[in-house]
Computed example of a mutant assay.
Amino acid sequence: MSDGNVTVASNVLGTIGTVLWCIQLIPQIWYNWRRKNTDGFPATMMFLWALCSIPMGAYLILQIQPQMFGFFALVSWAQVLYYSQ
């Protein structure tokens, strides 16, 4: 395999992984919204995920991926706070 093929393959797989990582919380957000319940869904984990996106977003300032992930983590955390009342 030549070096050009490795670069193309790693770019394609990296892009796919980045997109999937960004949108991984969307099905959970939808599920929580439909059920109007977040039993068993850890609020601390969602808060920490949202919190970690701040320094990651500052490091990767030219990419929108950390900000998108942080937004979805904040939405999930807000759902836990809202539906657990």
Rank of each mutant, 00 (worst) to 15 (best):
L62N: 15
I26W: 12
F71A: 10
N11G: 07
N5W: 13
M45G: 01
G14H: 06
A73C: 09
R34K: 15
W33H: 13
L48W: 14
R35D: 00
I23H: 11
Y82P: 04
C52N: 11
S53G: 10
I23L: 15
N32G: 05
Q65A: 13
V12H: 09
I64Y: 05
V75D: 00
G4H: 06
P55F: 01
Q65S: 14
P42M: 02
I26H: 11
L20I: 13
N37M: 06
V12W: 08
A73K: 01
G4I: 02
L51M: 14
Q85R: 15
V12M: 07
W30D: 13
M68P: 02
Q63L: 09
M1G: 15
K36V: 02
L48N: 09
I16A: 05
T7D: 11
G4W: 04
C22L: 04
N37Q: 08
D3R: 06
V19R: 02
Q65F: 13
Q67D: 07
S53F: 10
S10E: 05
T44M: 06
Y59R: 08
I29S: 01
I54Y: 15
G4D: 10
L74K: 01
I16D: 00
S53V: 07
D3I: 06
V12A: 09
A78P: 03
M56F: 05
M56R: 08
F47K: 12
R34G: 03
I61D: 06
G4P: 05
R34F: 01
S76A: 11
I29V: 14
D3N: 08
G70E: 01
I23V: 15
L60N: 15
N11M: 08
F47E: 08
F71Y: 01
N37V: 05
S76W: 06
A43L: 13
I26A: 14
I16F: 09
T38Q: 04
L13W: 13
W33V: 12
W33L: 09
F72M: 10
